[in-house]
Structures are given as C-alpha cells and as structure tokens.
Nucleic acid binder design. Sequence first.
RNA 1: GCCCAAGUGGUGGAACAGGUAGACACAAGGGACUUAAAAUCCCUUGGACUUUCAAGUCCGUGCCGGUUCAAGUCCGGCCUUGGGCACCA
Length: 821
Amino acid sequence: MQEKEYKPKQIEKKWQDRWNQEKVFLSKRDKNRQKYYILEMFPYPSGRIHMGHVRNYSIGDVVARYKRMQGFNVFHPMGWDAFGLPAENAAIKHNIPPKKWTDDNIAYMKKQFKMLGYSYDWEREIATHTPEYYKWNQYVFIKMYEKGLAYKRKAPVNWCPTCNTVLANEQVENGLCWRCETQVTQRELEQWFFKITDYAEDLLSGHDILKEGWPERVIVMQKNWIGRSTGLVVNFKVADTGEDFPIFTTRPDTIYGVTFMVIAPEHPFLERVKDSKVKEFIKRIKEQSLVDRLSEEKEKEGIDTGIKIINPFNGDIVPLYVGNFVLMEYGTGAIMAVPAHDTRDFAFAKKYGIPIKLVIDNPSSPIDVASMKDAYVEDGICVNSGPFTGMTNKKAIEAISDYAEKEGIGYKKVNYRLKDWLISRQRYWGCPIPIVYCETCGAQPVPYDNLPVVLPTDVDFHGDSRSPLTMMPEFYETKCPHCGGKAKRETDTMDTFVDSSWYFAKFTSPRSKEIFDFDEVNYWTPVDQYIGGIEHACMHLLYARFFTMVLNDLGILKYREPFTRLLTQGMVIKDGAKMSKSKGNIVDPDDIIDKYGADTVRLFMLFAAPPEKDLDWSDKGVEGCYRFVNRVWRIVQKYSDCYTEYNFDTVVLDPVLKNLRGEIHRTVKAVTHDIENRMQFNTAIARMMELVNALYQINEEIIRTDAGKMVVSELFDKLLPMLGPFVPHLAEELWEVLGHKNFILDEPWPDFKEELTAKDEIEVVFQINGKIRSKRNVPADITKEEMEKVALEDDRIKEMIAGKTVRKVIVVPGKLVNIVI
RNA sequence: GCCCAAGUGGUGGAACAGGUAGACACAAGGGACUUAAAAUCCCUUGGACUUUCAAGUCCGUGCCGGUUCAAGUCCGGCCUUGGGCACCA
C-alpha cells in the first residue's frame, strides 16, 4: 500500500476548519451533565504569542480535551487582558492609537491560537478594553465605593518615574518597578484604594479550602504576603505631657526589659521637635529613597529626641529615639525596644550606649548581661518582671496581655503586612474611574445609568507619557450628578489587575445586559482548574480572590473562592535563561509551527518536562517529538487495512499478541492515571511512545493474521483517542483514515480491563542481605510461599547461602525475595 | 536572617505507598536498507574492574551520619542552586 506522507500544515488546517464549521467547541449549559470549567490565565495582547503562552495553553488544552472525552460538559474560554502600558508606549513611539495597536495584536494572536488547534469557545471571547466589559469594572467600583471598600486618601505611594504612574505594593519588587525595573520613589498623593485589608482574615482562612487543590508554595507565598501577626498595643505615656504613646509588640513578655523607644521619622508626633540636630536627622532620612533606606540593610541609625517615655508596667522612664528602621505604615509607627531580647534593638543599644536589661533568663545556663554578645531570643524564664517573674515567657505573653487589657493600658491586636490595594494609575490606556468631582458636592460616583464612562480612543499623546485625558476638556468637563453644577471627571484609570480580577466569571456571559447572566455564571463558575504562572501568586491570584469575596458579599456570586484547583506551570527557558528579547534566546512559535506543525510543538511542550517545572527548550528534543508523530502516522497508515471489528471472546492469542494486548490495557491504565491523578503529561506521553515501540517490534506476518488484526485494531482504538488531547489534528486525521466519520474528540476516553493489565509472567529478583544476586521469571499468580521456595532453590542462591545460617526471609509479592544470612 | 522548593547518566527527565535506580526521549556509537546521502528500521550506551565471552564483582541518586531485611524515597546535620519574605517590632 502506498503510504501518504505526513504533511502537518495540510491536515492541521483541514481539521481546524472542520471544528470551526461544526462549532464543536461551543459550550452549552446542560443541567444533566457535570460541568468542568478549565481556564488558563488570559494573555496581554503584546503582539505575538511566545513559547510561555504555548506551554500554558497546551497544558490547558490537554485537560480540556481530556475532560471532554471523560464526559464532562467542558467550558474553555479565551480572551484578552487588553489594557496596559505597552499599548501606550507603542502609541507614543510609533504614533499608533492604543486601541488600534491592541486590536491588531488581538487579531494576530487569535490567528496563532487557532493555528495551534486549541479548543476554545470563541463565542465567549472577551477583551477588557471594550466598553461592554469595563462598564462592569466601573459598576463594581461604585458598589465597592458605596460599601466603603473603595476610598480615596492621601498617602505616601510608590511612584515609577519611567511609567509615570503610581504602583501597588505588590507591583514593587525589591524597590524596583515590576514592569520596567526602574527605582521606585515615594510620593505623597491622593489616590484611590480598595480595602483589601478588610479581607485579610478571609483571604487567610480561605487557604484551608484551597490547600486541596492549590500548590502549597502559592499558599505559603500569599500567607507571607498577608503577614498576620498577633500582639499587643500598649499605651506608654509621654513623661512631660501625659499623652498616650501607643506601640505594637508581639513580645509583651519582654515589656519589663524596655530601655528605650524608637519612632519612625515620618511620624506626626515629631512635629513638636525643636532641636535642630534632630530635625536635620529626620529631614535626611526622609529624603532617602526607599531603595537607599533598604539597601543599607544592617546600618541602623537613630538620634535621641530628648523626649522621655514612661513604661506603664514598671514606671521606668526611657528615652525616645528617631530611627530609620521603624516603619510609619506598620503597627503604630513607634516601637518599644528591648535590647536584651531582640537582635536589632541589641545592635542599636550597643551603638548608642543604651543600657540592656535582662528579663528572660536561659534556664539551663544563666545569662550575664555584661558579657552578652547578642540578644537572647530563645524561650526562658521571666526575671526582673514584677509579678510575672518566675513564669515561662510563653505563659507571660498571655498573662501580660490579659493584665494590660484588664488595667486599660493596652489591648490585643492583630496586624497585617498586607496594605490596601492602590488602584489609581496616572495613565491613559485603562478603565476610567467612574467618579466626578463637584466644586460643591465633592467626589460623586457616576450614576449606574450613566455607565460606562467611555474612554476616548482618538487621543493625542503630545509625544510623552502623560495621560491625554488630563488634556481633554471634552472628557473631563462634566456636570455633577448630584447638584448639576460644574464638575470634573477623575482622569486616573484603574490598575489593569482590576480588569483581570473577575474576568473568569464574565466569560460565562460576555454580552449580558446585567453584570452576568446569572443562569450562566451560576452554572459554570467557579473555575475547576486554573493554569498560569507562579509570578501571579501575590498579585492577580490574591486580587481575584479578594474580588470574588467582595462579589459574594454583594450577593452577585455564590462562592468565595474563584479557582478550585490551580496549576502553576514553569517557565520556558533556553540556554539556562528565561526566553527574552534582551537575552536574544527567543524561539518564535510561528517558526516552529511552520517547520513541524502545531501537533509537534504541543507534544514537545508537554513531553519535555512535568508542567510545574521549568522547561528547557531543545531544538533536538522537538525533532524527537516530530519523529514520534511520524512513527504514529506511518504505523497507522501501514496497518490501516488491518483495521477490523473484533471480539476476543472466542480467540486464543499467541503469547506475542497476548502480551501486546496486555500492553494496550496497561498503557491506557497508566496514561489515565498520569493525567487524572498527577497531571504528569510527560510520563503519559512516554507510555504511549512505549506502546508504539511495542507495535513496531512485532513482526508484520503476526499482525496480518486474523488475531493480529484484532489486536492492532484494538490498539488503534485505544491509542488514537488517547493521543487526541495531545496531538489533536493527527489523531483526527488518522481516525478518518481508519474509516471513522465522527470527530475523535467526541470519542469517550478509552477504558481498560484490569484483568488484562496483569502479566502472565513477572520477573522477580532474589536478594541476599539486600543485594540482588539472581533474577527469575515466575508466574504472576505465584504465592508468597512458592516464591520463597523458588528463591531458595535457585542455583546461585543455593551456592551463596551454602554453609550460612538463614536468619530471615522477606518476600514482597510480585517483586522480590530478600534472604538475610 | 526566616520560610518554601530542588539537587539522579554526556543532556531533558523516569522511579506513584521504603522494594530491580536511570522508563521515555535527546546526544553518541554500531548494523541493515541505498550506487551514495538523507530519511527509515534494528542493536549498544552510568562508571570501574574480572573475564573461561557465559557472565560476574564492586561503586554509584549533592555531602556526612542514622533508622530498616531493604533508602533516590524516611529521620538528623550540613553544602549548593532556585524562589518567596525581609529593618513587620
């Protein structure tokens, strides 16, 4: 028979067109079927897709297609995170309107997605830069404003001078802008915030639900980021005036050891300071950038203000220092310092000659203060601690806290590292914040009926990055919705992470008249499996959880966690580094698809590494996958004329065929397990390769017997559907070659017969003292006793145990016999 | 500094519940086919040693110890790499 050559371009186009014509990927609600919502993080339309996208979406597509074959009603949408800076930068540089740039990119990338054969329901497509989408951003914003969850306040904020905008805390990495790596500076600005701190506790407790389906490290990262700590606020007193001087501590057990206090340079309390040296110091520290203050890590600086503070527990009068290491934003902006039991306070006290007072002693070797080299931070017994002396310090934490509350000198408090989410951006290409400022009524939300506040698209950038909105009276000049008087629109736009915080739910009803079509959203969401990069652990994944909780509290969504299961895939790297333009190690998906076809690229992405690990790009590895695809192609073509009906009930297979049939069922079992329980696609593919290799090993004459034809037919019936999720076009084409008229993607996932997965004969090993000394094939159903007998009768074993005492014989059924002598 | 991962052949990676380390693939080498090459198909391939050529012995999963009949896998300590947090009181 004349074999056809494998031409991926032809067959891939052919099947993409057919899927499209038959609308096979459109999703419909069906109360009688279990839904499965699989979602990959939607991309920013940067221009063209990169290998990281290919990996992310190939993993998602395998899951989508696999679940579909398992009988689930699969929901698999795709869209565009379309607002953001690159569009503006392109506009400034090349004089292309951001909307056009974005739309063109979307069109191109969509074409690329289609070339890769992903099973998306494109009728659910959304793009966040469309008014029909961002209208609902504005809607939620106003809902949050009404609940006090969106508010404006003047605060020191992170400013990126390159991006010309403020940044949220989560978007500053080591003092650098997450996007352009410029040093972030501090500015005092009036900005819009979302009160995510109100949800700190919910975000933490939700982790208990998520630990089933989320990688532990993501949960740990979020926990660290939220940074919950429990402690006590203690009201110290200012000696001169008697005012309260509150501090926060997690170590109330050390309160009798306080020998000085430290306050943040930004603290308003310091306005009273007259001393010029102190004022100068404060000024100098305030002028340091965040980066500078962080970079001189170990160097703690301070100056005595001359102000005295009274410890309410023991009446000690201690000096108040200004210190560069105390943060205004955390706790109360001031701390009590216990040099004996805090390494940082110890270093500071040594530097400035402040006394050290021991209040917790080491029970096993008493501490001599004079010879202390560092703070004692271990547990111990309280000393010099008034009524608490003699207690273990652990007990004292509770006792002292209770005492403080009882005496009215303090209260227990939980503090978080998490800060409110700053969402204002001084940029153009984003969702307008739906607020107007009236000269008489102040800030007013835009009424719901007037939404959306449409972002004008015909804009002039005047060659720089300042938002054109600030120069467009036709945009910002408006009337107050309350009094009808003259008013000015907010010209800041929202952080694009707002757009992506709820998009997963909008996919269910992209063009609904309300925020959602509730039949749709209630049927499909939450997302059953979410897939994306780990870099979003403390940004997108935290914001989306927050939004879901808010929408739940607003009665809009019925659940509090948006993503039941999460898979964080690794990066695609080449020559040891992440693919990037600056490193010049980019491999363009278009080129690879052109050379080998989409099926090969997809296969390689799944085969080269398990999904969570980084994947090392290798041109040779891709060729290996191409070779496998061709091997499948050839062998199916070769034996397509053997494809027949089969019934094994009355057939006795010779050992070669029987073993091959066993191999078929073992492969189905293993592949199913690897996908279902482990999401380990690389080993699933390896198993299918083994099955194909096994078929190649068998003599053509044997296959062309009646029994052989039946086995090879069963093999194709199992193998091709399993290949479907990985190499969908190839699978469809070969399915058709075998005479099928239906889509292979609609075939049920292959099943296997457990009894056929067992081998007749298995190899067991005989060990002496744990070392392998002999091997033997034995019947698979051998008993423990028989195994032991066979082992002891083995010639080599006999030889080696001759004259020795057998102390113990361990038999592991089906595996080994270990003889201890 | 604290927290979390991960260290396995020349390479990417297997080994799922403590039970034959190195599946599958790449690279390398050999053979078949071919006038030849490519492609394809088949074989070999962790290291060292012994060798009567059938095999056998020893070593080997970052390092040092431990538990166990048996450890890549469990425990303790360390080293290295990657990631997160970091004057958080």
